[in-house]
Amino acid sequence: MKSITDQLTFSVTLTNKARTIAEEYSKGISNPLKKQQIYLNTLAVYAVDYYLQCMGFATDLEGSDSRDRLTIQLMNVADLNIKNIGKLECRPVLTNTEICEIPPEVWSDRVGYIAVQFNSDFQEATILGFTPQAAAEIPLHQLQSLDDFLIYLSELEIANSSQIEKSPTMVKIGQWLDGFVDAGWQTIEHLLNPQQLGLAFKSTVTMTRGQKIDLGMNLDKISVALVVKISEPKAGEIDILTQVYPIGNNVLPEGVELSIKDESGEDVLSVTSRNEDNWIQLEFSAEVGEKFQIIITHKEFQQTRIFEI
């Protein structure tokens, strides 16, 4: 692990304009600690916004919660919206501090957390590094480098752009019974090890297929198997068991969500993995001609598959 002093940093001069903005947002706050919190958060967001624009990323500063006067009074928030990527939390770090503190209220709905350290007279801000995951305290020497940060943002931008441009392909699950299986769906023996195979299902399984799903990018990617088991139609309905298994591990990461939505996008069923879960599953029935979505989510990453019976 490199010392933070050995890593690339980026310094931003805090102009009179920057300090005036911070003073304006903290003006009228009677609690001195809250007043300082808003002042520092505003400067941190200003510095990161300048840095990202220099690096070629489009930001939406005015659309961020850190620019909402009511929100910043109620919460310790220093977010910056990055277009086509998401919310980045910009956390201020004072001189001679060895940790970056992240308040619990911003532990979700963030693509990452970036540490911004000020000099003693608040004339300069230094962007030190980032972490993709929240914790109450992150030692500065454990921050990932700005080189990795730029790669991370670029990968998120590419992934999000691809999701916007490409709609999921409709899986004709009813055709599976006739032997026409969509490309990319494999027998589960090719995806899972023998110890993971074979769970109880209330109906006799006619066909089982699976598909590898990647959630995340290189720095924090996890791979899971989406397994779909179907029965023979009875009275115009098919029983369906859908499961999510880890690939390359014995247990799923905590917080993997499997959900079912109907054709209109309304939630039908959902389940979320807990600590040490080997798999998660949902069982339901669908009528012939019905459409539904299976969605797998982990943190800010989501994969959707659309099916038609």
Rank of each mutant, 00 (worst) to 15 (best):
Q7A: 08
T20L: 12
I82Q: 01
D178K: 14
G179K: 06
Q175A: 12
N84I: 09
S108D: 03
L80Y: 10
I213N: 02
S108L: 03
F10E: 07
N275Y: 13
L88N: 04
V268R: 13
G198K: 15
M1W: 07
I164N: 06
A18C: 05
T131M: 05
G174R: 11
I295P: 00
Q243G: 12
E137T: 15
L258H: 14
H190D: 10
I213E: 01
L282D: 01
L156E: 05
T131W: 08
D49W: 05
G112E: 11
E232C: 04
G248N: 09
I82G: 00
V205E: 06
Q53A: 06
Q196Y: 03
E165M: 12
C90T: 03
V224P: 13
I294D: 03
V251E: 07
A44T: 07
I222H: 03
A115Q: 03
N119F: 10
T297K: 06
V224L: 15
H190G: 09
A125D: 02
Q36A: 13
T204C: 09
T304W: 13
F307I: 00
M207L: 15
Y51G: 01
T59N: 04
S162I: 11
Y152F: 14
T242I: 01
I296P: 09
E157F: 13
S108F: 04
T13Q: 07
E98L: 05
G112I: 14
G265Y: 12
L8G: 04
Y46K: 08
Q175E: 10
R19N: 00
N249W: 09
N84A: 10
I99D: 12
K212G: 06
Q73C: 04
D220H: 06
C90I: 03
R274Y: 05
C54Q: 06
D109T: 01
V268K: 13
T20Q: 13
H141R: 14
R110W: 03
E237R: 15
I247G: 02
S30D: 13
V244G: 05
W279I: 05
N250A: 11
V45P: 12
G184E: 04
E189P: 13
L70S: 07
K27G: 08
L88H: 01
S145E: 12
T71Q: 02
Y46W: 15
S145R: 14
E276D: 13
D60C: 03
Q303M: 13
Q303E: 13
N76Q: 01
L269T: 05
Q243W: 14
D79Y: 00
N41P: 08
T204S: 09
Q133H: 15
P168F: 11
C100M: 12
S108V: 01
R91I: 01
V45R: 12
I38W: 01
E263I: 05
Q117P: 10
A115R: 00
D68V: 08
E189D: 15
T59L: 02
I309L: 15
P168N: 10
S120P: 13
K87P: 02
T97R: 10
V271W: 02
L80H: 10
R91T: 01
F149L: 00
